[in-house]
């Protein structure tokens, strides 16, 4: 059953020209973790803030558990938000930060103590209640911010780029912790990020957004393997997008050609670096090696087609290739796009 239903929501900001969110719809199931993924300015944060009640939709409906909450103020919504900047109250200690919301709900003091301590244990900060916020590290502050939302047992947890201010190691660890907690509590979660790693590793489903619109909503593996638009293809992972033309079932671009069984016209050919085999060729070369990078486990070859279009290929033996060498390309899996839609996949 869907816990959160967003129906045809648009947000136009006061000056009237910026459509931050454009006719957006989404159903989130009970216990599901959905990632809103997109570059900055794609409207993902605005959408999350509308679910939290901090922005009002210009049009459309927001429904939580069958109840229309479109015009309900944030303090009356069953949502809990974790902010990118943590937004902890620096004039209170950790315990008071967590207890504030419970006090507003007139929970008995010993019950407050029990619940706060329980949640602090859950986020790995047992015994930190008397600490001041300023005494905590960035990761600990983020955990307190998460605990502050969780202690109120919200129906929907909203996370607005919660790890953006943390370093890479901490980010990876917290991402696993948050996913564990989310699955243990089975709490419905909406997660905003511009990091594809975060989305791919955490989400049950990913919503890829661009200019306030949905590009694709799917499971992470499908978004990765079967991107529905060239934008998604280019945004998730590394993808070679080669713009060329199809004529008589042959795609060609600057000396490179490959069979593509679609009607004549322009097309964008999409090939992942790991799906592109290279062979050294002195005659009939389709491209030239520009740079070889050895990552230990594999190598990455940057090559140029005859018109200087850049293409990346992943190789298992980088020592076989040298800059300036001629190569031939043999894609193992391709997709082709025309007019922002898939026309072929093989």
């Amino acid at each position: 059953m869907s816990v959160l239903k967003i129906k045809d929501v648009s947000k136009i900001f006061a000056n009237g020209t910026v459509r931050a969110v454009d006719n957006f719809s989404l159903d989130v199931a009970d216990g599901e973790l959905v990632c809103l993924l997109g570059p900055s300015g794609s409207g993902k944060s605005t959408l999350l803030r509308m679910v939290g009640g901090f922005e009002r939709p210009t049009s459309g409906l927001m429904i939580i558990n069958g109840e229309d909450i479109t015009h309900v103020p944030p303090e009356k919504r069953p949502t809990g938000m974790v902010f990118q900047s943590h937004a902890l109250w620096t004039h209170m200690n950790v315990f008071k930060n967590l207890a504030f919301g419970l006090k507003l709900r007139k929970v008995a003091p010993d019950e407050i103590k029990r619940r706060v301590e329980g949640v602090l244990d859950l986020v790995g900060l047992g015994g930190y209640g008397t600490r001041h916020v300023a005494q905590l590290s960035g990761g600990q502050q983020q955990r307190v911010a998460l605990a502050r939302s969780l202690v109120l047992e919200p129906k929907i947890l909203l996370l607005d780029e919660p790890f953006a201010s943390l370093d890479q190691h901490l980010r990876e660890r917290l991402r696993e912790e948050v996913r564990d907690i989310q699955q243990r509590l089975k709490i419905t979660t909406l997660f905003v990020t511009h990091g594809q790693d975060e989305a791919l590793s955490m989400a049950d489903r990913i919503v890829v957004m661009r200019d306030g619109k949905t590009e694709q909503i799917d499971r992470p593996d499908i978004v990765y393997r079967e991107p529905q638009t060239p934008f998604v293809a280019g945004f998730i992972g590394t993808m070679n997008l080669i713009e060329g033309t199809v004529s008589n079932g042959i795609f060609s671009k600057a000396g490179y050609s490959t069979p593509l069984p679609v009607s004549d016209g322009p097309a964008i050919l999409a090939v992942r670096p790991e799906a592109l085999d290279l062979t050294v060729a002195n005659d009939n070369a389709q491209g030239k090696v520009h740079r070889v990078t050895d990552y230990g486990t594999h190598g990455l070859v940057d090559l140029e087609l005859l018109d200087s279009t850049r293409v990346k290929a992943m190789v298992s033996h980088p020592d076989l290739f040298r800059a300036g060498q001629g190569v031939r390309l043999a894609p193992k899996a391709i997709a082709a796009y025309r007019d922002n839609a898939v026309i072929h996949r093989a």
Binding site: G53, E75, R148, S149, L152
Partner: peptide
Amino acid sequence: DRRMEEAARDVGAGPFRVFWSITLPQAG
């Protein structure tokens, strides 16, 4: 920080309570 005030709204404080418990102590 406006986010601090929003966080207070989020956990259930009305606008006046936010001013009293967050804005004023922060600016105090």
